[in-house]
């Protein structure tokens, strides 16, 4: 038998992947343990909500507007083939409310908010600011992680509704320029096919996405190491992992909502 001690169970890479999943799970459970424990940092939650919303408002507005306009423009020829251009407002509204608005908001937020949380907490970790909180008898998890996760869970659904409104405005602009449809006629037609389940599903999705972006960003930043390189890695991983999880959640939530739809 070799005298050299084996350093891994499977392969080193597989071991670290399992370890990362386990540590993520522990972090996730800790969030739910800490959220109801001790004093709630309401002021910090409001501050973070404002920072998240304010940071993303313009970008999400512009992206949503362009998405609505381009989607309408691209859908018109197909509907025109069947002489069904009058269905355009309904089609666009269904696409925006059911899928596009939540997804666009989540992906933009993952890039902007997720990376910002990852980098902020990462730099606090490597400059010992988190340790400083701990030795000052303050719970850094409660102050930094719980507040940011709650803030993104609250702010992203609001941003999603904002994105929906702006996307529909973009769609309306395209329709009115091409077909001369009035504002009231467009929105009457658009909301004809929208059900409570569509709005509820969209809200549930954006809550799940907001939570994911917050918790992944915080996990990556809170556990950053290796100096400035670690900060960059934390920001990058926060974006990549949260985007990946967002698509998985999208698939699951769509399946569940379709079950109720039938």
């Amino acid at each position: 038998m070799s005298a050299k001690k084996r350093e891994h169970v499977y392969t080193r890479r597989l071991d670290s992947a399992f370890l990362a999943v386990y540590n993520g799970y522990v972090f996730f459970l800790r969030f739910f343990r800490e959220v109801f424990k001790g004093r709630m940092e309401f002021q910090e939650i409001v501050k973070q909500c404002y920072a998240i919303g304010n940071k993303s408002l313009l970008l999400i507005g512009m992206t949503g507007f362009i998405t609505g306009m381009v989607f309408t423009k691209q859908s018109r020829p197909s509907l025109a083939e069947f002489g069904a251009v009058s269905w355009l407002p309904s089609l666009v509204a269904i696409a925006i409310v059911r899928a596009l608005a939540a997804l666009v908001t989540a992906l933009i937020s993952a890039g902007k908010i997720g990376s910002s949380i990852g980098a902020e907490l990462g730099s606090m970790r490597v400059t010992e600011q988190i340790d400083a909180m701990e030795v000052s008898a303050v719970n850094p998890f409660k102050f930094l992680v719980v507040t940011r996760v709650l803030a993104s869970t609250i702010a992203i659904p609001i941003l999603m509704f904002y994105c929906t409104a702006v996307s529909l405005l973009g769609a309306f602009l395209n329709v009115t320029l091409n077909e001369g449809t009035s504002f009231i006629a467009f929105f009457e037609s658009a909301f004809e096919q929208i059900t409570f389940l569509d709005i509820f599903t969209s809200l549930a999705k954006s809550i799940a996405y907001g939570f994911t972006i917050g918790i992944v960003g915080c996990y990556q930043g809170y556990n950053a190491s290796k100096g400035t390189e670690g900060v960059g890695k934390a920001a990058n991983s926060a974006v990549v992992i949260s985007m990946f999880l967002i698509f998985i959640e999208e698939v699951i939530i769509v399946q569940v909502s379709n079950y109720f739809r039938i």
Partner: peptide
Amino acid sequence: RMKIGFSFQNSALYDSMTVRENLEFPLVR
């Protein structure tokens, strides 16, 4: 920890807070 003061090598001041807020932070909590 309330009885221990720890002065870090790089000071570890909270970048996003003013000096007043840095000092208030452990006190009010």
